[in-house]
Deep mutational scan, measured.
Amino acid sequence: MDPFVVLVLCLSCLLLLSIWRQSSGRGKLPPGPTPLPVIGNILQIDIKDVSKSLTNLSKIYGPVFTLYFGLERMVVLHGYEVVKEALIDLGEEFSGRGHFPLAERANRGFGIVFSNGKRWKEIRRFSLMTLRNFGMGKRSIEDRVQEEARCLVEELRKTKASPCDPTFILGCAPCNVICSIIFQKRFDYKDQQFLNLMEKLNENIRIVSTPWIQICNNFPTIIDYFPGTHNKLLKNLAFMESDILEKVKEHQESMDINNPRDFIDCFLIKMEKEKQNQQSEFTIENLVITAADLLGAGTETTSTTLRYALLLLLKHPEVTAKVQEEIERVIGRNRSPCMQDRGHMPYTDAVVHEVQRYIDLIPTSLPHAVTCDVKFRNYLIPKGTTILTSLTSVLHDNKEFPNPEMFDPRHFLDEGGNFKKSNYFMPFSAGKRICVGEGLARMELFLFLTFILQNFNLKSLIDPKDLDTTPVVNGFASVPPFYQLCFIPV
């Protein structure tokens, strides 16, 4: 058959498939802009700032609406009420993970971030239990974070109060905490193996944040037939998995079943207990991918939040002064901060919360999916439909947070200066898919920041009023603009 005829037939089939998918069930789905064949609503979305586009569309179609990214149908949730109703009140029905062709290629359905069903539930339950087990290797997770915080302070001392970009050092600290939990080992910041790991993690975040990856996920045929950065992403992930597998083999040879040292040991012990169960989800494949998931999810998000926190503290020296006064009063100079201190430091706690609220790190979270046909607000959402959640619409709700575009710790303080919780605080998402490392991340943010401010004054290279804190939105995360500062020993 003539190649031209084959091409026309293929394009015609794709067009018909697109029209059929977009028209099927439209009477039951939430409203939304009319999609174009094949490309859907992509032309109506700013790929570099999806969150802003969703906010604009919500003003037209309401808090629940339908979009098509290519052939992929998505239902968008915008605003606290619908997000709570879906992710919390109907948590089980909305607990699936959205379709990610690239991740599915890399992870093969294993791990904790992109798995679904029984596998996801069992691996998540085990990971939560293990991360909360403060007795691994007779050292609590808090001990590990405190140790890394001391190392971080010593690295900052080496800058000798000269101007520096904190990106690298602030990236090393949370990565080392995860390494300590998974591998029972922290690395020197100049260790070549550690630097290679950091390089792969950072490069992957840069790649994932590009519009090209959005295109690959919406048109998965590209993955096999086109060159691009997605190939580098898959190569980096394969490198990390190979490295983790080597460490798993080392653990198998040296493990003491009665004295687990780290996450890998705990997983291997669980595998041993379930070795007679042919349906067990505790396999080497799941261990390797879960460890890679924890490394990827637990490094860049925390380091970016820390980097943004220091920029905001530079911009608002009056806030920094209040935090340091609270540190001096509650902790002093002669001991290290600990998590028990947080309950006695409402202002510092409010500042950490406000940093996370203000920066809105992951504006749309990772997409969910419905696990069955769901009736939601008089609409029928078919099983498997991807759910896109606007966390921006919750964290920047102007009824809950007056002047949401302003950095103001009073958003989390009552009139008496006591810490005030808010149900709208969802930087880790909400419901059954809430970030498994939430507790660890909150511990790291509090301890790293208090250790830094206990030991250093922060000095800006320019007038604080002239510092730009506008986030650089890159399609996946909101990151701070480049800046330098000086760490002046107190």
Rank of each mutant, 00 (worst) to 15 (best):
G416E: 15
P346V: 05
L467H: 11
F4A: 12
D265T: 03
F187I: 04
I39N: 04
K138R: 13
V374F: 02
L131S: 03
N56G: 10
I284T: 10
L391F: 04
I244E: 00
V323F: 04
L170I: 08
E72D: 10
G417F: 09
P166S: 06
V76N: 00
D414G: 08
L312E: 04
K200F: 03
G70C: 05
I88R: 05
F263I: 05
L77P: 00
P35S: 06
D397R: 02
L366F: 11
I178T: 07
A106D: 04
P35G: 08
G96S: 08
T167P: 00
H353W: 03
V394A: 06
L312Q: 05
C13K: 01
S115E: 03
T159W: 12
L388Q: 02
D414A: 07
I269L: 12
K158S: 11
T167I: 06
F451Y: 15
E405Y: 12
E285M: 08
A103N: 09
V83K: 02
P382D: 02
L449R: 03
Y308K: 03
R433H: 04
Q340A: 15
I60A: 11
H251R: 06
R357S: 01
A321C: 11
L413D: 00
K235M: 11
E328Y: 10
P367R: 06
C372P: 00
P174Q: 07
G79W: 00
T55E: 14
M129C: 10
K121C: 09
N133T: 12
F446T: 03
L16Q: 02
N423A: 15
P402H: 09
P317Y: 03
R150T: 06
E285D: 13
I42T: 09
K118E: 14
Q278V: 14
D2I: 08
T364I: 15
T304C: 14
Y61L: 00
K270V: 09
Q146Y: 08
Q193F: 11
E81W: 06
F226Q: 04
C151F: 14
R410N: 15
F110G: 11
N418G: 09
I213P: 06
K421D: 14
K160G: 14
L312N: 03
E253S: 14
L445H: 05
P481M: 10
C338W: 05
